[in-house]
Design a protein around this nucleic acid. Structure first.
Lengths: 214, 214
DNA sequence: ATAAGTAGCGAGTGATTACTCACTTTATTT
DNA sequence: AAATAAAGTGAGTAATCACTCGCTACTTAT
């Protein structure tokens, strides 16, 4: 039903070239990297948790960092990029009558993504300060494209006179801050908490705050 | 002039019980923890960068983690807590006529704090996912007090009829998200960038979004 | 002047690190 | 069934890890 599956499981299931042991390694590594961080997790621990000899890890991944990238990169390149863009096209195709509805759809969409990929997202956020190549990869493959797509959409609703005529990047920043602020509090306090009323208030706040000046 | 000095330098200057070497250790460790992360930084490296024997580090700090906490804890306990509360009292004492002005003062205030303590804040944010005791310390000593104080202030402006009558925590979340979103983009893109116009737009957006319903 | 305490040192500790390699087992091809 | 290739192993490696300890140098109290 859902087009957007759990990244890890999707990778594990769809990729036939993956071995059973390799799958176990990826699962174990994801678990431990999310929990203790990349630098504080030893390949020994990963091997034990995966029920695999340590050598097996290095048969498939040249280095420990290689293993990290093989978990995080697909999320960026294969998932975040195309799927976000696909989703956005879907959103643009549907052409919600109001910016408000678009935002609501976006929140629901990212909510589902987060629910299914929390651990990989967590690893990504935790490790990005320490790995410049991760940052560059992200900006190059995802960041620019996604931002530009959002800017298109915002300008679309601006031309319909629904939202204020600030620079699109500013509108994007204000909107994204609110949404990410909601997710941040939600996942820090309690991932299961899902207050629809809170979302309604946020959308109402955005609508008022971004209303065109009379 | 500034009441709020660089935390590290303040600690180094004010605390007479600190040795010259100890100061060098703290400076070097702050530098490296911010850059490579706690787990990926060896005590050997710190000693070399500080121009000190490795043993000297452990003369003053029982463990490596002890060193981390001695850098991060003061920021939380001595600075974030009392000073934020002091500042907030100041703000409440001044009793800005409008919520808008209060927000503006708050942004300026936190801006100065960030400019002077970027590295320690960076370490704190990077390491908090991996050290539960850091999290608990923060919530216990800082989080609750600060949140409660902000709630007081928000209710103050609500009772003056200046902002919408949503739950104070919701107002706080929306406001904090916008401000933190601004800082995040600023420090990720370019720490020196300081667009007053951007701040004005943000405050205007908050004012509109949080205006009382008619 | 002497004793006591503190600061600093750096070689040395066992444990752990990421990674290698010669080898065995399993799967695939011919 | 034989040959080839790929997957998996686990003991082994040098390097590095956080940390200790016996020592010297210096400061302070008596």
């Amino acid at each position: 039903m859902t087009e957007e599956n759990n990244l890890l499981e999707e990778m594990l299931q769809e990729d036939d070239s993956l071995t059973d042991k390799q799958r176990k390694i990826l699962v174990a590594a994801t678990e431990m990297f999310a929990e203790k961080g990349f630098a504080a997790t030893s390949t020994n621990e990963i091997a034990k948790k995966a029920g695999v000899a340590e050598g097996t890890i290095f048969r498939h991944y040249k280095t420990k960092k290689d293993l990290l990238l093989s978990i995080v990169t697909p999320m960026m390149v294969k998932m975040l990029g195309p799927i976000i863009i696909k989703d956005l096209n879907k959103v643009l195709d549907e052409d919600f009558e109001h910016f408000e509805e678009f935002v609501r759809a976006m929140i629901k969409n990212r909510q589902e993504f987060l629910d299914k990929n929390l651990k990989v997202v967590q690893i990504f956020l935790q490790e990005i300060p320490f790995h410049p190549e991760l940052r560059e990869q992200f900006i190059e493959h995802i960041g620019m494209k996604v931002v530009n797509r959002f800017i298109q959409i915002i300008e679309h609703y601006q031309s319909k006179g629904q939202i204020v005529n600030l620079p699109a990047t500013t509108v994007l920043r204000l909107t994204a801050s609110s949404i990410m602020g909601y997710f941040a509090t939600k996942y820090i306090i309690d991932p299961k908490w899902n207050d629809d009323e809170e979302i309604n208030q946020m959308i109402h706040f955005l609508k008022k705050g971004l209303a065109p000046e009379e």
